[in-house]
Write a protein that binds this DNA or RNA. Structure first.
Length: 858
DNA sequence: CTCTCCCTT
């Protein structure tokens, strides 16, 4: 009997299960004789032709044969032998192949046949920059391999894990997803081969993964890595991935380059005769020219924005009323589809039937400037590879034509080279990397300047500074803090929703269809559900307020807790950002009228001019209260925004002596924050037996002195108690509130419920301009009283009498007031999440950078 | 008086 080498690689648990491998008959065993990573093309072809599916051992379905025939015609298919040979002898491979070569569907299958990951309990992963691609390619490959999607072949994207543990061995996934997995599994030990597809797109996730994999490959000699790019600029990948392990005295191991011919049809490129001052207008003329003169076939026009597309569309529409263009041929009736698109059609969308591409050569690009922390959306000339990609869209179905703005004849060869960037800038050089920095820190990549990036970002983007003080971002992200404090304001449910919506901000269609977009809402709901799980994990209450006014107030206060660094103050027609004093305008999409004096914003973006976008009104006193270190006026930079803040600070001086016990602890298990105890500030209140006159004795007073503008107090007492709230002025109780123009606000519920629960009595006496509101909730079990005091020199006394009168003392009445939250880090408390000048004391060495690493304050 | 495009805990 022939020894079956395949069997030797099976884990013992698998040898007993399933069909017997002991038969030496290749008739029964399609993978008979396969030696992992030493598989030849001849073997694979035989297995593919086998009447049994090699992976399910079931007979093939009827459609398998048809699909297989189609696969034989793919350009990459003819290179299977060559690929398998290179795969057998190299740990890392770089591949070039344009869209249409079949590389994304075929290469992972070739790898699977050779690697046989299922025999080792491992997986082959193939990453994609986009979710749709991961899903649709996985479906296609599942069909080709004649298996059910989600079984042997699956995909994994955020919110959707279409894989089955112990069954799936070929997995398509987003690059972000694999990066996420690397957080929990530094060696990516589940995988036997990792394929980074579309590497030319240079997404942040793919770039970081490449750096990580380069290192992992040193430790894990069993891990194979394939990097696939659609453009010819692969030499860079090749030399980057060639391992230089100088510390170990290792030789550079050259990484082979494997080329896949593309199947796309030739595209003839035409250049304009002279520079066009108005490229939109010129592009429209070109489209019409094609329409009049060229053979049938649809047209794809690239413009930079929706606005441009809308501009272009009416002008061409007007031509509809012009005389119909002459048919170019006898009997040819003109009529074709013209697709006007942003660069979404460059990669994300493929439109069938496109034969002509009109490319003015521009796109909008988001560029992040770490020095001023502003993102700019700039219209920029596209790169040469981008231009190639666009032109390629004309040759998907048959030979096509591309009408390009780039005219070599307008420049000397040298000028042309300098005019257009060779490659589109890698995203890692253009993006705000705050989150990526945190992820790498979690991964134990401590000194980011020394991380081996393919293209190293500016040091400023790797370290977050604010006026020379480092902010601990892993505790500090705006959204996270906002979520954590939100139960305190009793609006965590709403804040959860807002957070989910903000993480969806880029879908600009969300309000367009009936002012709502089903897709955007579904996405937000997914994000919300995910965040909800996180909040439950950390025992953060998810609660909401019934009262709309209070709820809206609470929401804005919670927002202020998170976004205190993103605040702007109105100065005349414009706004000035707090601290860096940049002149900005409210983005027209905010629709705020009148414009509030103080706003917080989600985004600062430079388009036609500097705008702040997605804003809400805040009160300056909240800022001083919730972010006292950040808004410490002693160290506050001089500027227009300082004066109004100083005024507010004076007004609220007397409010600073409140008591609070908010406590957010740093968890042992990895640096996330959780609320372990969250008690509202306590106002001493007099309690005791019933009877009159007790308010004179023993009651401690919460002094609210001097220029108090507004105080809001919410008192919760048990049902069956009597609540008396009095206002004392100058040591004397103020009587005759009515005369002073004060009315107690009683809601319907108070009357109704108070009548039902006879023992509940609410009295409010107050002085001028005091408003009080009482509301009975939950069947008179709890009485809520809201007081608003707007007067100087006021003392407020809250008295609760226990009408049950068993002589029981009620301890204290809880008075909810927004307070400063403390963060306990290494046993010490840092207020307001900001480390400020005391950084050195609280510096967490695991973050890997120290204050002296960078000094970018300027 | 306005919005290139993707990805994730």
């Amino acid at each position: 009997m022939v020894d079956n080498p395949y069997l030797a690689h099976l884990p013992p648990s698998r040898r007993g299960a399933g069909p017997s491998y002991s038969s030496s008959s290749s008739e029964k065993e399609p993978l008979f004789g396969f030696l992992p990573r030493k598989v030849k093309g001849e073997q694979v072809r035989k297995a593919m032709e086998h009447h049994l599916n090699p992976f399910t051992k079931l007979p093939h379905s009827a459609q398998y044969r048809n699909i297989l025939e189609a696969r034989y015609t793919l350009p990459v298919y003819s290179q299977m032998d060559e690929f398998l040979e290179i795969f057998s002898t190299n740990q890392t491979i770089v591949m070039v192949g344009e869209t249409g070569s079949g590389k994304t569907t075929q290469i992972p299958q070739f790898v699977t046949y050779s690697d046989l990951p299922h025999t080792k309990g491992k997986l082959v992963a193939c990453t994609q920059p986009r979710r749709v691609a991961a899903m649709s390619v996985a479906q296609r490959v599942a069909d080709e391999m004649d298996v059910q999607l989600g079984k042997q072949v699956g995909y994994s994207i955020r919110f959707e894990d279409m894989t089955e543990a112990d069954t799936t061995f070929l997995k398509y996934m987003t690059d972000g997803m694999l990066l996420r997995e690397a957080m929990n599994d530094k060696e990516l030990s589940r995988y036997s081969t990792i394929i980074l597809d579309e590497a030319h797109e240079r997404t942040v996730a793919t770039d970081i993964l490449m750096g990580l994999l380069k290192n992992i490959a040193r430790q894990r000699k069993d891990l194979k890595i394939i990097v696939i790019s659609a453009t010819l600029d692969v030499v860079k990948f090749q030399s980057y991935l060639s391992l230089h392990d100088s510390a170990a005295g290792g030789e550079p191991s050259p990484v082979p380059l494997f080329k896949v011919p593309d199947r796309t049809h030739p595209v003839e490129i035409f250049y304009t005769q002279e520079p066009e001052p108005d490229y939109v207008e010129a592009a429209i003329r070109t489209v019409l020219m094609i329409h009049c003169a060229e053979d049938p076939g649809d047209i794809l026009l690239f413009l930079t924005s929706e606005e441009e597309i809308e501009d272009a569309y009416p002008s061409s529409q007007q031509r509809i009323f012009d005389a119909a263009p002459k048919p170019s041929q006898e009997g040819y009736s003109p009529g074709r589809k013209v697709v006007v698109s942003t660069n979404i059609a460059e990669t994300s969308l493929t439109i069938d039937g496109i034969v002509y591409v009109v490319d003015p050569g521009f796109s909008k690009q988001m560029v992040y400037n770490p020095r001023i922390r502003v993102e700019s959306l700039l219209v920029s000339p596209i790169s040469k590879t981008s231009a190639q990609q666009r032109a390629g869209r004309a040759g998907r179905t048959r030979p096509g034509k591309c009408f390009s703005r780039h005219d070599r004849r307008l420049y000397t060869e040298k000028d042309f080279i300098s005019e257009l960037e060779e490659q589109t800038h890698p995203q890692i050089l253009l993006s705000n990397l705050a989150n990526a920095v945190l992820e790498l820190a979690k991964l134990g990549i401590k000194v980011l300047v020394r991380f081996d990036f393919l293209d190293a970002p500016a040091p400023e983007t790797l370290c977050v500074h604010w006026n020379s003080s480092i902010i601990l971002l892993h505790l500090m992200t705006k959204l996270a803090k906002m979520l954590i404090v939100s139960p305190y304001f009793k609006v965590s449910s709403e804040i959860l929703t807002i957070t989910a919506m903000l993480s969806n901000k880029h879908d600009r269609n969300w309000a367009s269809n009936n002012f709502l977009s089903a897709r955007a809402l579904a996405q937000a709901e997914n994000v919300r559900a995910q965040l909800l799980r996180t909040m439950e994990k950390y025992d953060i209450d998810v609660i909401s307020l019934e009262n709309e006014k209070k709820r809206n107030l609470g929401i804005r206060q919670a927002l202020a807790c998170g976004f205190f660094m993103h605040v702007a103050h109105k100065e005349g027609e414009n706004y000035l950002t707090v601290k860096d004093n940049q002149v900005v305008a409210l983005h027209p999409s905010c629709g705020l009228d009148p414009q509030p004096e103080w706003v917080l914003y989600n985004e600062f973006i430079l388009t036609k001019r500097p705008y702040i976008r997605t804003v809400t009104e805040v009160k300056p006193e909240w800022l001083l209260e919730y972010a006292p270190i950040y808004f410490d006026l002693a160290s506050f930079p001089e500027g227009e925004t300082k004066r109004p803040l100083q005024r507010v600070a004076c007004e609220r001086l007397s409010l600073l002596n409140f008591n609070f016990k908010g406590c957010i602890q740093n968890r042992q298990d990895g640096g996330s924050a959780a609320i372990t105890e969250l008690q509202p500030p306590v106002v001493e209140a007099q309690t005791g037996g019933t009877g009159e006159g007790q308010e004179e004795e023993g009651g401690e007073k919460e002094g609210l002195e001097e220029q108090v503008e507004a105080v809001e107090a919410e008192v919760v007492i048990e049902g069956g108690s009597k609540l008396t709230v009095e206002v004392v002025e100058g040591g004397e109780k103020v009587v005759g509130a009515e005369e002073k123009g004060v009315q107690m606000v009683e809601s319907e519920e108070v009357k109704g419920e108070a009548a039902a629960a006879e023992e509940v009595e609410v009295e409010v006496e107050a002085m001028e301009e005091v408003e009080a509101m009482a509301e009975v909730m939950e069947e008179a079990e709890v009485v809520e009283v809201e007081l608003m005091v707007r007067e100087e020199e006021v003392e407020l006394e809250v008295v609760i009498e226990d009408l049950d009168d068993e002589g029981k003392d009620k301890d204290k009445v809880e008075l909810d007031r927004p307070g400063v939250f403390g963060v306990t880090l290494s046993g010490r408390t840092i207020y307001d999440w900001e480390v400020g000048g005391e950084f050195a004391d609280y510096y967490d060495p695991s973050l890997g950078f120290t204050p002296s690493d960078y000094d970018v304050s300027d």
